[in-house]
């Protein structure tokens, strides 16, 4: 399997850095270099158990990512969210018809564009944790940090599994 993991958000805005944190824990586990908080958003590729894994951290999703997505079988989108639920691992569905801006593309739009422009829409999962605070600081709140650790465990267990990552066992963690 070709897996692409895209983390996005701003690690300088506390829990908005959840995706960045999870990505680095995955990078540690997979033997990939860590992405520096102050450095340029980066990417790297490695072989894991016969699979090809590529990870990247970007500041925002944009249409240029569609080409990257079209080259893989599965994409995981790592981010924080503000809904009540603690953890979300859910398939990325088709966009719901909103107009687009260039600043903020959704994972759904990126994958739809991969399909319509490049001919291959990969399977996608939105993997997000609830953020508590988004002020100016480069640390996660304790609750979000705990959720990130749980999310990391779930992704290490299921990211490369045929059925994909799962929220089971259920629970906020």
């Amino acid at each position: 399997m070709n897996l692409l993991v895209i983390a996005y958000g701003n690690p300088s805005r506390m829990d908005d850095g959840a995706g960045h944190y999870i990505l680095n824990r995955l990078n540690e586990a997979w033997g990939l270099p860590l992405v520096d908080l102050l450095g340029e958003p980066g990417e790297d590729t490695v072989a894991v158990d016969g699979h090809r894994v590529r990870t990247m951290w970007v500041q925002q999703l944009d249409m240029g990512l569609a080409e990257d997505c079209a080259q893989v079988d599965r994409v995981l989108f790592l981010d924080a969210h503000v809904d009540d639920v603690g953890l979300v691992i859910a398939p990325v569905t088709d966009p719901s018809g909103l107009g687009l801006t260039s600043h903020v593309l959704t994972a759904a739009t990126v994958l739809a564009l991969a399909g319509s422009a490049y001919g291959h829409r990969p399977e996608g999962f939105r993997c997000t944790v609830r953020g508590e605070r988004f002020d100016f600081a480069d640390e996660l709140t304790p609750d979000t940090l705990r959720r990130c650790q749980t999310m990391t465990e779930r992704l290490l267990a299921g990211a490369l599994a045929p059925e994909g990552p799962s929220l089971e066992p259920a629970g906020d963690a």
């Binding site: 966009p95 739809a112 564009l113």
Partner: peptide, 13 residues
Amino acid sequence: ALRNVVGLARNFP
């Protein structure tokens, strides 16, 4: 719903 870049890609890939 399709008057955007995704719709554009379908018609003008």
